[in-house]
Each structure stands twice: as structure tokens, then as C-alpha cells.
Design a protein around this nucleic acid. Structure first.
Lengths: 181, 181
DNA sequence: CACCTTGTTCAGTCTTGACAAAACAAACCG
DNA sequence: CGGTTTGTTTTGTCAAGACTGAACAAGGTG
């Protein structure tokens, strides 16, 4: 949880929607919905996905009740899912001094990246363990060993790319923004 | 569905379990269970995951009823899940002339790899679409644009690694084995 | 033909998890 | 202190999906 500078209240809904803004609105809607589905594939509640989508697209942190309203879900759901995402390190809760309400923003994402990479590593390790247990000189051509090698390489490649991406981000310093789910 | 050469019946259960084999058995069990959990994370039924694990570890194709027995699940579940994996191109149904029963084996996996890569591409496209819709000169520093760039790069990196891995496999010819889930 | 064997499909059960609504807690304000 | 705002926790409902077991089909085989 971070305490930030005074935050100008977003209140985008109050602006008269310029004609061109219409397309933007629609695109945002699609993106938010798309993130909902995408993260749902990764075993997160759909609302969590939409939350991520919405926060990626918002230049300013958004207020708790704003989220419930905008996504049209109960405050309970917002509470549950924000906490979930907070624990995962995907979003961050932000407060202002003298303001009792909570705001949320997308986090810089090395933590999440790391988590995904780790999951790949775990699977790689699992395959490696299996390979170890294999008797050394197995019958004709060692099919199983080769298969496991393929599997190991698969997971290794994914984990490696993520790690090298992480390295790039870290090196670029904290100022480079990324949304990574 | 492929018609193969005569397949020596596996029947590993008939062999007297050598002392060293014990560790192997245990490792296999762990691996199978691990693949069950891993693929469950990817939204496949757990049984499907175990099936994949078991088939990866089996040098020979396994018989339908063997699968049910070994994994201790109903034939119905085997039927459903083998068909699922077959449709996904993960496993292959193999038959022998003069044998009414079905055998299954792990498939060479470029198809599956491709599918995973495509999913990443789709998400990348989604993020790019959103970026397009953004007004060109957004306010201070273009935070949202930068975030989307990060997201795009994230998905692109994953898709690219998979594609290049695919290329390597293809180039190596059909003889290189890989298990990719 | 009756009768296996083999695999598929269908109906029913059970678990899981998402979500809403309401009860609740805590901080603040008068 | 009572009442309000803000967020959390709990309770209950609902839907999705995995799995089993039984019914079923389609071939063989006597």
C-alpha cells in the first residue's frame, strides 16, 4: 500500500464525450472485456481480469466505489478481487492523506512476471526429476528420455524468455511501465 | 488415427519389479500426478493431464482399458478425455490390424505448440488494438500507451519464443520427439 | 442367432467457485 | 454518543464442469 500525492479525481463520466472519444470508449470496453476473458483462462475470476484491464487503461488510480460502479459488480466482489490482485502484486492500493477512500492502480509488474516464470521453472523441474529417475540405458532409442528432453526444453524456453525480459526491465530502471498479466 | 506396426503388448505389471525399479515407479507416479495438476492449471480436466503424463512416460502405446485400470478411473472418463486430447492433437489413437482395441500414444507436438503460441498472439493483438485506439498525443508522459507497450511486448516475447522453438523442431525433422503441454 | 468385447454417450451426483446481498467492523463526524 | 461512510466478511444461490455408472451401439465369435 502506497501513499501518493494528491490525485485529481478522474471523473471521466462528467466530460462531454467528444465524438472521437466514442471509439475510444468502445475500444476500452473491448479491451477490458478481453482482459477479463484472457485472465479467466489463467484461472483468475473474470472480474479480476476486467479489473486489470480497466486499471491498465486508466491513467489515474481509480476509486474503490468507482470500480464497482463502472464494472457494475457488487462492492463485495471488488473487495475480494482487489485483495486477490493486490496479494499477487498485480495492482496496488493507493491512499491520499486526508482521504478515507482507497484507490487502485496497476503495478509495475516484475513481480508477476517472476511468478509466471517460476511456474514454468517448476514444471521444468518436474520433468527433469522424471528424467533423472529414468534408468540410464533404456531400450531402443530412449524414446521417453527424448520426450522428456523436449518437455524440459519447452518449459525452459518460456522461463528463459521471461527471465531475460525481466532483466531488460530491471536494467531499464523503475521508470519503464509494463502491464504483464 | 494411425495404423501402426504390430505393437508388443506393454504389460509392465507382469515383470517382477526389480528393487531399483521401485524408485522409477514412484517417480512416474509423481510425474503423472504433476502433469495432472499442471494441465489442470491450463483448464484441462485433471484426468486428461494424468493421461498425458502417463503416455509421455510410456515407451509403448497403451491400451484403452489399461489406461482406465492404471489411472483407476471409469472407462467413460477415458473415452471422453482421450477424445478431447485426440482432438487437440496431443495424443494419437493407434490401432493394429486384427486387433479390435484402441491404443494411445503421445503425439509429436508442433500442433499444440502452435496453439499455445497463437493464444499469445491473440492477446498481443488485443493489446495492440487498444493501443491503436488511443488518442495520439495523450496527456503527461502517455502512461497508458507505455503500459500497453509493455503488455504487447510481453505477449510478443512468449509467442516469439514458441515460434522459434517450433522452427527448430520443424527444421530438425519429424524424428525429434517432444512433449509440449 | 445369442453372446461377448470394446468403446461411446447419457443421466445423475458432487464439487468448486463466482457472485450478490446483507451483516458486520472500523473510522470518522456531528 | 448516534449516525454515516467505506471497505470486509459471511451466507446463500447459482452455474459449470468433472466424474461415475449404466445404458447403449457396433462389431466380432461361438
Amino acid at each position: 500500500m502506497t501513499v501518493s500525492e494528491p490525485i485529481p479525481v478522474p471523473d471521466r463520466s462528467a466530460e462531454p464525450a467528444a465524438a472521437a472519444d466514442f471509439a475510444l470508449q468502445a475500444a476500452e470496453e473491448r479491451f477490458i472485456e478481453g482482459m477479463g476473458l484472457a485472465l479467466e483462462e489463467d484461472r483468475l475470476p473474470r472480474i479480476a481480469g476486467r479489473l486489470v484491464g480497466l486499471l491498465i487503461v486508466s491513467p489515474q488510480p481509480l476509486r474503490f466505489d468507482h470500480l464497482a460502479e463502472r464494472l457494475r459488480v457488487s462492492r463485495g466482489s471488488i473487495s475480494t478481487n482487489t485483495r486477490l490482485l493486490e496479494n499477487m502484486g498485480v495492482i496496488e492500493r493507493v491512499t491520499r492523506p486526508g482521504d478515507r477512500r482507497d484507490y487502485f492502480q496497476i503495478n509495475e509488474q516484475p513481480g508477476l512476471l517472476q511468478r509466471v516464470a517460476d511456474r514454468f521453472r517448476d514444471r521444468q523441474a518436474m520433468a527433469e526429476e522424471m528424467k533423472q529417475a529414468l534408468p540410464p540405458g533404456t531400450d531402443g532409442g530412449n524414446v521417453v528420455g527424448d520426450r522428456l528432453d523436449g518437455l524440459i526444453r519447452f518449459y525452459a524456453v518460456l522461463a528463459d524468455s521471461l527471465n531475460s525480459m525481466l532483466a531488460v526491465i530491471e536494467e531499464a530502471g523503475g521508470n519503464s511501465r509494463s502491464g504483464t498479466p
